[in-house]
C-alpha cells in the first residue's frame, strides 16, 4: 500500500499518525494492535491497512463503535471491537504487541490521557504510540519512565491539531494546539527495542 493511497482512504490520518515511523520500527505489520479509545476507528483502520494481523478497537461509547464497525466494513477490514471504559479495562496477558491511541487530552478531565497511557503500557508488549499535548511533554516523559513501566519515551514528531468546537465545554470556536506523537517501549521488553539503531 502506498502512503498516498492510505491518506486518500483515511482523510485525517496524516494529522493523527505517521505511517513511515510506524513502519520503520516494525511495530505494526503482522502484529496484534490495540486502539484504545478508538472512536470511529481511524487509527485501528490505519493499523489494519499497514498490515497488522489482528486489530482490536476499544471504546466506551456504543455509537462510536457502531460507526467504527461500518467504517471497517466499508474499507473491507476485519477489526475486533470491545466496549469498555479504558480505565476499568479487565485484561489478561501480553497478547497485544502494540497500542496505538489518540486519547482524550485531559483538558476537561485532568489526567484522562494519563489513565490511557497507564493501561496502554500495561497491555502492550512491544510499543505504545500515543498523542499528547506538547505543553505536557516533560510531565508525560517523567510519569511514563518513573511510574508507568516505560523503558523509553520518545517524541517522534510534533503536530498541530485543529480542534473544532464539538462539545459544549469547548468555549472557543476552533483551537489550534500543538500535539506530540510519542513512542513508548514497555520495560519488560527491552530486547525488542527499535530495530533501526
Amino acid at each position: 500500500m502506498k502512503l498516498k493511497q492510505l491518506e486518500g482512504l483515511l482523510g485525517d490520518l496524516q494529522q493523527f499518525s505517521n505511517p513511515k515511523a510506524e513502519n520503520s520500527f516494525g511495530d505494526v505489520s503482522n502484529k496484534v494492535v490495540a486502539d484504545l479509545g478508538c472512536g470511529c476507528g481511524t487509527l485501528g483502520a490505519a493499523a489494519a491497512l499497514l498490515g497488522a494481523e489482528q486489530v482490536i478497537g476499544i471504546d466506551i461509547d456504543s455509537h462510536s463503535l457502531e460507526i467504527a464497525s461500518l467504517n471497517a466494513e466499508d474499507l473491507e477490514l476485519d477489526i475486533n471491537f470491545i466496549q469498555s471504559d479504558i480505565k476499568n479495562l479487565g485484561w489478561r496477558g501480553q497478547i497485544v504487541d502494540t497500542v496505538v491511541m489518540n486519547p482524550p487530552f485531559g483538558t476537561q478531565k485532568k489526567g484522562a490521557d494519563m489513565d490511557f497511557l497507564f493501561v496502554a503500557l500495561k497491555i502492550a508488549s512491544q510499543a505504545v504510540y500515543s498523542l499528547h499535548k506538547t505543553s505536557t511533554r516533560d510531565h508525560i516523559k517523567r510519569v511514563a519512565l518513573r511510574a508507568f513501566n516505560a523503558s523509553s519515551a520518545e517524541v517522534l514528531c510534533e503536530l498541530r491539531f485543529d480542534v473544532p468546537q464539538l462539545y459544549k465545554f469547548h468555549k472557543k470556536k476552533e483551537v489550534d494546539i500543538a500535539v506530540d506523537l510519542w513512542r513508548f517501549v514497555p520495560k519488560d521488553n527491552q530486547g525488542k527495542e527499535r530495530k533501526d539503531i
Partner: peptide
C-alpha cells in the same frame, strides 16, 4: 467476538480476585 479476544478479557468488577476466564 473471536476467542483471541476472549483469551485477553477478564472481569474487572470490584472485589473479584480472578475474573479470568
Amino acid at each position: 467476538m473471536r476467542l483471541l479476544t476472549h483469551n485477553m478479557l477478564s472481569s474487572n468488577i470490584k472485589g473479584v480476585a480472578n475474573g479470568f476466564p
